[in-house]
């Protein structure tokens, strides 16, 4: 539901980085999106495309990279949750448990990213 403001922040970061590097256009943006955020990828892309119109980022390809939830448990288990067990965020919240020992409250160590990882840009001259 807050896709627009998230898109705005992503746009500003991308544009700032592009301009700092004297880009003539942004070719692509790699964006990591944790599966536990309340962000709808399609809405986010729609917002980004709308905001980017008329800017250096207008024709950029958005590569969304889903980041699965990872846990770290007192029992020593550290790793990705079995995605097949959790189809939705609701499933996950109800059934979340450590795959190692069954503890219902392991610490979530990833899955909440909205990270602009890197961008590919075009420059006028060879560097």
């Amino acid at each position: 539901m807050h896709e627009y403001s998230v898109a705005m922040e992503i746009y500003e970061v991308v544009l700032k980085t592009a301009m700092k590097n004297d880009a003539t256009k942004v070719i692509s943006v790699d964006l990591e999106l944790g599966e536990l955020t309340h962000i709808n990828p399609e809405q986010l892309v729609f917002c980004l495309e709308s905001i980017a119109k008329g800017s250096l980022m207008e024709d950029a390809t958005l590569n969304l990279i889903g980041i699965p939830p990872k846990v770290k448990c007192k029992c020593g288990y550290e790793g990705v949750l079995d995605a097949k067990r959790y189809h939705t965020i609701s499933d996950l919240a109800f059934n979340l448990s450590c795959p190692g020992c069954g503890n219902p409250v392991p610490k979530l160590t990833s899955g909440k990213e909205i990270n602009v990882r890197n961008i590919k840009i075009e420059l006028d001259e060879d560097v």
Partner: peptide, 8 residues
């Protein structure tokens, strides 16, 4: 003209 990748 060239393309570069920038870590953000």
């Amino acid at each position: 003209m060239c393309e570069i990748s920038v870590e953000v």
